[in-house]
Every structure is written in structure tokens, then in C-alpha cells.
């Protein structure tokens, strides 16, 4: 799993830098387009992901003491945050698409939509992983001694969070 996490970080890293350097050729365009974004929605999404990561930490600490059920409950809380993130993100995207914006509109929107969608798919995958872990935890499949599955799922979710922590200021704030 760590191998995948590194590969993912590598891909996102390359895209972040591509954004930053593509911007140097086109500062005005990037700044102007950035102002059209819904920054509030971005910040709420940040809070949601950070919090969900925190709940996952709580879930891991519960299973370390062998509390399967409460581990599962925290995971469900985390996934609820994740779901809220997805809903918000979808409404953000649909707003843009209704405004006639797509990946070919300009380079900024190419990155905004492309990277956003790519990250979106990672949240979806993270939810699937957490879902599977939750199910197993609920059925008592993990114990204080043996819960590598929870830790692995958690690591993936934190990676998704980490990527967003860089993505949000980069695309929504810095100008």
C-alpha cells in the first residue's frame, strides 16, 4: 500500500508543479479565473476532509484498544464527512459546467477541473476502502493485536487528505 501512496503522491506532485509553472506563463489568466471560484465551498471542503482524517485517527486509536464497534462508528463519521465533501464538490463542478466551462476553456480550468476530478476519484476510492474496513471492523474482524487493515485504509485516507491540503491553497488561494 505504501508503494501506491508514493506513486499517487508522485502523480499529484507533478501536476501541482505543472500548475505552478504553467501559471508563470499566464499569470493574469490564472488570477482572473481563480477569482471565479467558490472559495467558501473550497474551505468547507478542507474542513470536512481534515475532520474526517481526524475521525479516522480516533478510529485507529479505538481499534488499538480492541474496541471494534466504536472504531467502526468513527469510521462511519469520517465517511459521512467524505460524502459531504463529494456532494459539495459535485455542486461546485455542476455550477461550472452550467456556466459553460469545461477543460478546454483555458489552462486554469483544465487544471482546476482535471485535478479536482482526479482528486474526487481518489476520495471515492478512499471511501470504498474505508467502507470495506468499516464492514470488517463492525463484524469484529480486527483486534488490538491484529488490525493492519485499519491502519492501511487510514494511511490511504490521510494521503487523500494530504493532497487536498496542498491542492486547496494552490488552486483556490495563492495568487
Amino acid at each position: 500500500m505504501w508503494f501506491f501512496i508514493l506513486a499517487e503522491l508522485l502523480v499529484f506532485g507533478i501536476f501541482f508543479l505543472a500548475y505552478a509553472f504553467a501559471r508563470t506563463h499566464n499569470v493574469e489568466l490564472f488570477n482572473a479565473s481563480q477569482l471565479e471560484l467558490d472559495r467558501a465551498s473550497g474551505v468547507i471542503n478542507t474542513v470536512l476532509l481534515i475532520s474526517s482524517s481526524y475521525f479516522v485517527v480516533l478510529a485507529v486509536s479505538r481499534i488499538r484498544r480492541g474496541h471494534s464497534r466504536s472504531c467502526a462508528s468513527w469510521l462511519i463519521t469520517a465517511m459521512t464527512c467524505g460524502a459531504a465533501f463529494l456532494v459539495l464538490k459535485l455542486s461546485e463542478f455542476s455550477g461550472k459546467i452550467e456556466a459553460g466551462i469545461n477543460m478546454s476553456t483555458n489552462t486554469f480550468y483544465m487544471f482546476y477541473l482535471g485535478l479536482g476530478f482526479f482528486h474526487f476519484m481518489h476520495v471515492v476510492l478512499g471511501m470504498i476502502i474505508l467502507g470495506a474496513v468499516t464492514l470488517k471492523a463492525w463484524r469484529g474482524g480486527y483486534s488490538a493485536a491484529d488490525h493492519a487493515g485499519v491502519e492501511t485504509g487510514a494511511a490511504y485516507w490521510h494521503m487523500v487528505d494530504l493532497v487536498w491540503i496542498v491542492l486547496f491553497p494552490l488552486i483556490y488561494i495563492l495568487n
Binding site: 482524517s53 481526524y54 479516522v56 485517527v57 487510514a154 494511511a155 490521510h158 494521503m159 487528505d161 494530504l162 491540503i165 496542498v166
Partner: peptide, 9 residues
């Protein structure tokens, strides 16, 4: 990022 990496992960 550091918090997420060092503490959460």
C-alpha cells in the same frame, strides 16, 4: 502537511 504526515499517518 507535517501534522498529517507525522501524527495522522
Amino acid at each position: 502537511g507535517n501534522i498529517v504526515i507525522d501524527r495522522f499517518m
